[in-house]
Write a protein that binds this DNA or RNA. Structure first.
Lengths: 199, 199, 199, 199
DNA sequence: TATGAATGAGTGTTCATTCAT
DNA sequence: TATGAATGAACACTCATTCAT
């Protein structure tokens, strides 16, 4: 709130501007002057706060990843503590409105593609990738043997990313409710089959 | 073989060179002189054959899509005609070695991301996207009611793309056998669950 | 003369333009667009022919050094073959009109200063530096014992560079005739004193 | 010592920092933030004390010139009052350790080159240039006719600058003792030859 | 008085495209 | 048909300078 926070505010404004600009023209087509204009600042300010273009982009990806993390954490906090509810919450978080907006999906996909060619981005991407897997795995282990839990976690993680990926192509026509339903069915099958086996 | 085919051969060489170069430096980092060098031709030749850079890239994406189509068609032709075998063949085709090489995965992901910002690429991407869905849907309909078949097709398509997407991050560590196993399990559950329900 | 020489001609035009521009604004203040404008070409052509700015500057320094070498060689070829005449010719070459023009002197001094901070330029500078010394030393050895010849060569080389350096500050007021006379006197003293000692 | 002197102290610190920085990266490569960092101050302080970058550089050159002047004055004060001893002292001053350090030589040469393109720097350079000449001329006149004294002064001044200039290229390999010896020999010849001629 | 965040003009360099040969 | 030299607009980045605090 005080003076001290102004630098942090400007960093955030710049990151937001970068995020928006990526949504408009893509990561490949972004220019610093576009970002600066979007943020209402000068071009030189980027190197002042982020060193160079890559620094800004890295910070922007961190922000995108952080937002997803927070969204999922919120959903889980509001959900019942049992395994299935927690897994459903993870799915819900990944398909929350903030994560399925046109801009977010474009940025996501751009960063994913870019991480194939940049060590820094790839590291970040992997952290996020593993987090989804281990969050799921942790819950599945409460109900399934380790080996099955691992396979289930991989399957659900893939299904979430796959639904999301295919949804990105649909643009406005992405049926989030249907995506969640399909993912939930898969989870139920996986857990339910085990229950049946137990009984 | 004849003179007439030389132009076509050069087109293919150029496309191959573009494909390899994308694998090395990414779609964002590619330059025409790199492609020309890789193909052993002059820089001016691209506009001669493809109009401009975008034309070459579009043709390259068409090639990538076409290769996947051919690979899946091969697998299906060799598989038994029943629904489950055909679905398994579609899965196998999507995870065939030619489709899971480092170069292919990078090109794929780059094109997917780029299709968010280019109408031409997006159109191509959508055609492919729908083909996977309708191929799966067609088979599921032989065993499931339409509504369920559609959900199953969406789920399997998402799982294939999701496994593939997450595998792209793993680089060399992508366990193709495990990916296929998870996808097949999901198909079996979907078909089998229905069978169980029917009986 | 033929087509083949056009690239070489453009290289020379660019080097000339760089030389002239250095004379106008100095090595520190030179920009590629100035050079390109002076040469009547586009800015991109520099990297085409010289890789980058440093490449052009290095080539320009080589040209300046080469011109001095040629000028001195001409003077020596026209002079009598005896030691004193050859030494006088070396002095004359260093103070020839082409070497004492405002532009040449500015370029020279700029390159000398820059060679303190650039390995490539320093290497070039040293080659030239040693050439003056060894040319002189070679002649002095015909008349003096080795140790004395070396000192004499160092002295005359220093005097030439010193007169030239101080002349650079004078601008148009540089009295070339006087400079040559002082240098010749020093040579005569050095050689003559030895003669006197011998007799 | 008092408060009043603090501004003067900061000026000197800034000039020292500029001098050191020039030694490291050259006059062409210097930036105000480097200087400010070296001095442990803020970037804005330069305009506060020196108006702009050129002001700082001009002050730095003045300092370099002043140091040489003081060094020569010290040497002369400690030398015998006769002409030859005074001339030797001038030579010694010019080759004193403080004047032949790597940093000093680089700064000197950079300033000399820059003075070709800046009126302010050139004026300063000329003052120093003439001072060396008139100091020498003054002493030579005590022993030689005016015309000869002038030539001798020009010759010795050139020899000093030339030895120093060539020494700058040698870096650590600059043999100061040899340089002084060569210069002294030249002075002795000039004075002694005249003596001999008189007798 | 002193700071350092902010500006924005100017730089070297890259590269898709053109076109004379 | 094919070349590759040439163009020039666009880019990221630097840095002297300003000014609110």
């Amino acid at each position: 709130m005080l003076r001290k926070n102004i630098p942090e505010q400007r960093r955030e404004q710049l990151i937001s501007a970068a995020f928006e600009t990526i949504g408009e023209v893509g990561l490949a087509g972004i220019t610093l002057s576009q970002v600066a204009k979007e943020a209402g600042m000068s071009t030189g300010i980027v190197s002042h706060y982020f060193g160079d273009k890559d620094g800004l982009l890295l910070a922007t990806m961190r922000k995108v990843l952080g937002d997803l993390h927070d969204t999922v954490a919120d959903c889980r906090a509001r959900a019942a503590p049992d395994a299935q509810a927690q897994i459903f919450a993870i799915i819900d978080g990944n398909f929350a409105p903030s994560q399925t907006s046109e801009t977010t999906m474009r940025a996501w996909l751009d960063f994913w593609a870019a991480s194939m060619h940049s060590a820094d981005l790839r590291r970040l991407q992997r952290i996020n990738d593993r987090r989804l897997y281990s969050n799921l795995c942790c819950q599945f282990k409460r109900r399934l043997p380790v080996a099955q839990a691992r396979k289930a976690a991989m399957g659900v993680a893939a299904m979430i990313d796959g639904l999301w990926l295919r949804g990105s192509l649909a643009g406005g026509g992405f049926d989030i409710g249907l995506a969640c339903a399909i993912a939930r069915d898969y989870v139920r099958q996986t857990l339910g089959g085990e229950n049946a086996a137990r009984s």
